Amino acid sequence: MLRAEVEERAAGEAAAAGLSEAAHLELLELCEEQFTHLEKLQNEIILCEPEFSENLQEQSVNGLIATEAELKQWLSVEPSLLPSNSEILLQAGKEEMLKLCSELEMVVSCYEAKRDKLKETKELEQKWLEEKKKVLVAVTNHFERLKMEKEKFSGHSILLDTKEKIQKMKAYHEKLMETLGDVLEVHVPLLQNETSSSKKKKNIEQEISEDLISLGDILEVLMNKALETPHDPYVTIDHTFWPPYVEMLLRHGIAVRHQENNFKIRLENFF
């Protein structure tokens, strides 16, 4: 039954392929030979099958030995060549080429689909990369702008704060000087020479009093010296410093005399 179906199919394929009668007969003879060989092998296999054994291990070993023997036999068999008929070879080559072309078309189709997918993914990744670059540029520009504004604002605010502190210090200094002037004007007035009895003595004291400076001026000289040259704050006492003023400053701890030179004084450190 199977042989008849195969022969009928082979005849149909030969007729469809347009083979000649000789080629058709050669194919039929080849099919007959193969089926005859197949029946022979099938009969040999049936005859060589071992009887059923209850020992499964022994049955497995026998099956393995038979399989190894069959493998060795197939390895030793040389493959049969194709028929020498050129029409059959041409038809077989055509079928193989058509089959190979179909497989290659499927491969090409798969790779084209994969290429299109990769291309689409690449375009999406490039678009995402461009967007991220734009975001990075915008963030960088914003950061630089904020940095510049911060530096500018910080420097400007520090300058304004310093100016404000300087103005406050100047105002406080002027207020202190005015208060000091008022106190000195009330409690330590300028020198008066009207108490002299003799005219000569009066003239001498008037000459001296013209060169003397007030207590406020002495304090100003001491403060300026302490601020301008803090490493050498001593002021030399000359004829313009009235001794009672100097003594009063020393006794009340406002001024300090030099340890090695009694003619130099400085303002006491109040901090």
Rank of each mutant, 00 (worst) to 15 (best):
T236H: 09
N224S: 12
P230I: 00
S197V: 04
F270T: 02
V235Y: 00
T195R: 08
N269M: 04
S197W: 06
E185F: 11
V256W: 00
E205G: 02
N261C: 08
N203W: 09
L227E: 07
P243H: 08
N261T: 10
I208R: 15
I265A: 02
T240L: 01
Q206Y: 04
Q192S: 14
K200S: 10
L176N: 08
E228L: 15
L184R: 01
P189T: 07
K199T: 14
S209I: 07
V186G: 01
K225Y: 01
L176M: 13
Y172E: 15
Q206H: 03
E260N: 13
D182P: 00
N203H: 10
L191H: 06
P233M: 06
K165I: 11
K200N: 11
V246A: 05
V246Y: 04
V256T: 04
K165D: 13
L227C: 06
K264H: 11
S198N: 12
I208G: 03
I254N: 02
L215R: 04
L227V: 05
T179Y: 08
F270Y: 10
K200G: 11
T236P: 00
M223R: 10
S209Y: 05
N203C: 10
D232W: 01
R257W: 00
T195D: 13
A171K: 15
F241L: 04
L180R: 08
L176Q: 11
I254R: 04
L250Y: 03
E228V: 11
E194T: 13
L219Y: 06
E268T: 06
R266D: 00
S196A: 11
H252F: 13
L222M: 07
V221D: 05
I208C: 07
R257Y: 03
S209M: 04
Q206E: 13
L180V: 08
E220D: 14
E210G: 01
H231L: 14
L250C: 06
R251G: 03
T236E: 12
H187R: 14
Q167K: 14
L212F: 08
D211C: 14
N193H: 11
N262M: 09
E268C: 08
E260I: 09
S209G: 07
V221A: 06
G216W: 01
E185Y: 06
M223W: 08
L191R: 11
I208W: 08
I204P: 00
D232S: 10
W242L: 09
V186Q: 11
E247W: 05
Q259Y: 08
R266N: 05
L215E: 07
P189A: 07
K225H: 11
S198W: 02
N193E: 10
R266K: 15
L267V: 05
P233E: 04
T236I: 13
A255M: 03
A255T: 05
I213R: 10
L219V: 10
M169L: 15
H231A: 14
Q206L: 09
N269A: 03
E185V: 06
F263C: 09
I204T: 13
S209E: 03
Y172K: 15
Q167L: 15
T179V: 02
I166F: 13
D182V: 08
L267G: 01
I218C: 13
V188T: 09
K264S: 04
T179F: 07
H231C: 07
S214P: 03
Q192M: 06
I254P: 02
L215I: 05
H173P: 01
K168W: 10
W242G: 02
F263I: 04
L222R: 00
M177P: 00
